Simulated scan of single mutants.
Amino acid sequence: MTAVLETRHLNKTFGGLKATSDVSFKLERGARHALIGPNGAGKTTFINLLTGLIKPSSGDILLDGKPITGLKRESRVQRGLVRTFQINQLFGQLSVVESLALVIAERRGHGWNMFRGLSRLKGLDREIADLVSDFGLDTVAEDRCCDLPYGKQRLLEIAMAIALKPRVLLMDEPAAGVPEADRQEVLSRLAALPSDVSILLIEHDMDLVFTFASRISVLVSGALFAEGTSQEIAHDPRVKDVYLGGGHHD
């Protein structure tokens, strides 16, 4: 296996606080990898470093073996590094179809002018239709984002991320806040994501983590504490003591 995303000795300091401490991490191509850790472990800081939201104090980030440490967020997205957020980042007044059309048009370089030439974007209707179907959005395709049930909002955000054609998808708690009645649909759609997209999942829900991920990294106090297969992490007594609470997933 080869790493599609890698960090080497990544550090981030805020004043006297070391939020990320010498993290060397690899996301293998096609992986289903989870990043877990207690509150305050530095998971969000790490993802913000990967996506360019904040700059590291030292260390390197590589995508497909090429350094991206100094690139802006937009450039990282263009190179295939895409993120979903814990809190939805949707266009509230646009419909599902319009939101997907906007993302696809932006990816193709048409930007906000896409509504004036929507009919000229070859293949757009088919691509939108496929995304709507793949993510179970058929019944709400013409509804405004702000009117969608929360579970559908989460699915739309993931669909919009996939519309960007990512090679690497960073997912920040995709099931957070989703009602139990809608949760299974979100989980099944996650399981069906394209196999050629390498996924790093941040999640507190251990049932989701151990169902979805084949490999897990544990972050504690900004440093990598443990890493291994889901079974190795589930049976690691150090991880149970620090995070899992002991006795679960035996």
Rank of each mutant, 00 (worst) to 15 (best):
Leu169Phe: 12
Val220Ala: 12
Arg167Lys: 15
Arg183Cys: 09
Val178Asp: 03
Glu203Asp: 14
Ser198Gly: 04
Leu201Cys: 07
Val209Trp: 11
Phe212Tyr: 14
Leu208Phe: 12
Leu169Asp: 13
Thr211Asp: 15
Arg183Ile: 02
Gln184Glu: 15
Leu170Trp: 00
Ala223Cys: 02
Phe212Gly: 08
Ile202Arg: 06
Ala223Pro: 02
Lys165Asn: 14
Arg215Phe: 10
Ala191Thr: 06
Val186His: 02
Glu227Cys: 04
Ile216Pro: 08
Arg215Cys: 11
Arg167His: 12
Val168Lys: 12
Gly177Glu: 05
Ser188Glu: 15
Leu193Glu: 07
Arg183His: 05
Asp196Val: 03
Ser217Trp: 07
Ala181Glu: 14
Glu203Gln: 02
Val197Met: 02
Ala175Gln: 06
Thr211Ile: 00
Pro179Tyr: 09
Val197Cys: 03
Val220Asn: 14
Ala176Asn: 03
Ile202Tyr: 08
Arg189Ile: 04
Lys165Ile: 01
Leu219Glu: 04
Ala191Glu: 14
Arg183Thr: 08
Asp172Cys: 11
Val218Leu: 11
Asp182Lys: 03
Phe210Cys: 06
Glu180Arg: 11
Leu193Val: 09
Ala181Arg: 14
Asp196Ile: 01
Gln184Leu: 10
Met171Lys: 10
Ile216Thr: 05
Leu224Lys: 15
Ala176His: 13
Glu203Ser: 10
Ala181His: 01
Val168Cys: 14
Phe212Glu: 03
Glu203Pro: 10
Arg189Gln: 07
Glu203Asn: 03
Thr211Met: 06
Phe225Thr: 04
Ala176Lys: 11
Leu219Pro: 07
Leu200Glu: 05
Leu219Asp: 04
Leu224Cys: 06
Ser214Asp: 15
Pro174Cys: 02
Glu185Cys: 01
Ile199Trp: 04
Pro179Ser: 05
Ala191Trp: 00
Leu169Met: 15
Arg167Glu: 14
